[in-house]
Nucleic acid binder design. Structure first.
Lengths: 233, 233
DNA sequence: CTCTCCTACAGGCTAGGCCAGTAGTCCTGT
DNA sequence: ACAGGACTACTGGCCTAGCCTGTAGGAGAG
């Protein structure tokens, strides 16, 4: 206990939570021990002692791993490995240095292009009104000298809603944060908000006309425009 | 407090963990109390008493919420709300009434068609080997009179990996459970496993030839085949 | 040979305590 | 009067110790 490893006397910004370190260590252990899906982790009491922590803290780490989808803890049996550890590192990477921009753009374009096509097929008049509302909002923001980021977000949300595809909408929400970052960077470019608004109008018209192919195409070009700028940095 | 709510006669393997219920309750509290990003949750000792659990268990729930990206726990200050609670309800919704089948298929096809195309463009020889391995596994399972569900899963994971798109890989992992259900239902149909294996081979060949369009097309048809059956129920 | 029951061991959760960071307050020296 | 620093009343972080419930495999009875 007293041989406490003190990694950093500093670390003010750092918020080193023990359970986070444990997650790292357990992930490492899983990999180095060549554990395969279905295998069991050592018992809690055992692990806790080996790692030099209390069971309570270890339990927190296990909860984290469970939420991350790495393990599946079963009462009376133990913690069984679920997927390959690679999935875990993907998730870890996402949360940590929140992925690189190209990956985000890729996911976004995949989802939104399809959503635009679906929106063209399924949109109701109310959906269309929401889309037009968003366009008006963005126009007003730009007229005020703003970037129009809020209207931009509203527009994409309206299109997503018009697609009436709950699961995909949920996936969009999941990467929403990251998309927002992309958006802000893009709209910071001079002249971008106007260009963006124009391509939004193109998408909206295709959806209004119920032309799925045109909507998909317009969305594809819109995202390319937006991501181009971001990638230039 | 609450007298044992038994939500589902289903869930045979039901494994009701207290911290999971707490996550639900806290999510509900956040919503009903109209908490906004930046607001603080009540103190741990307070919450624990109000919810009738120990601090250790509450701590597990907070870890879960932190991993889910809902809150940000700061030593000495408290648990501050991060994003909009919608993200939380997204996850909750996905986990709970795991959406309806058509929506799942829709999301799956959107992602996987694109992943197949990307895999064709980016696959390494190692990726290809993993894909071939999965095909062999599925073949062996079918020869044994099995449904080949394991090999099927391996195949889709291998394709996802070959696409080298971390964000989309995570989205796939996110809907993974639901896709698995679809898969099991489909493969239960007589003759299905063989058909499925054939279309897997088609996808694999397109990826081997680095033909993105063909890969996307093959994946599209594969998913239509699979979902057709499932939808007939 | 089969079935039942027993038990060692797995995780689930609680209680209570001490340590460490944070921030507001109040007291003191200028 | 005011600026600075210490006090203090919170916050979460982590630990020990213990008892509960669930699981599964082996021993014994039939």
């Amino acid at each position: 206990m007293t041989d406490a490893v003190d990694p950093q006397p500093l670390g003010r910004l750092a918020r080193p939570r023990l359970y986070e370190q444990l997650v790292e260590q357990l992930l490492g252990y899983i990999e180095s021990a060549r554990l395969r899906p279905g295998d069991l982790l050592p018992a809690e009491r055992d692990l806790a002692e080996r790692l030099g922590v209390s069971r309570a803290t270890l339990a927190q780490a296990l909860v984290a791993l469970e939420v991350l989808g790495v393990i599946d803890v079963q009462h009376g049996t133990g913690a069984v490995l679920r997927h390959r550890a690679s999935v875990a590192s993907v998730i870890k990477g996402l949360r940590e240095h929140r992925s690189r921009l190209p990956d985000i753009v890729e996911a976004r374009s995949t989802l939104e292009v399809r959503l635009a096509a679906l929106a063209a097929e399924r949109r109701t008049d109310a959906d269309l009104a929401a889309i037009d509302d968003a366009l008006r909002t963005m126009q007003a923001e730009i007229d005020d000298g703003d970037r129009g980021a809020h209207g931009d977000e509203l527009f994409h949300q309206a299109v997503t809603g018009a697609a009436h595809s709950p699961v995909m909408a949920q996936l969009m929400a999941f990467i929403g944060e990251m998309v927002l970052e992309t958006r802000l960077e893009s709209l910071a470019q001079p002249g971008r908000p106007e260009q963006s608004l124009v391509s939004h109008r193109g998408i909206a018209e295709a959806i209004r006309a119920r032309d799925a192919a045109a909507a998909a195409d317009a969305m594809q070009r819109h995202i390319e425009l937006v991501s181009d700028v971001a990638l230039l940095q």
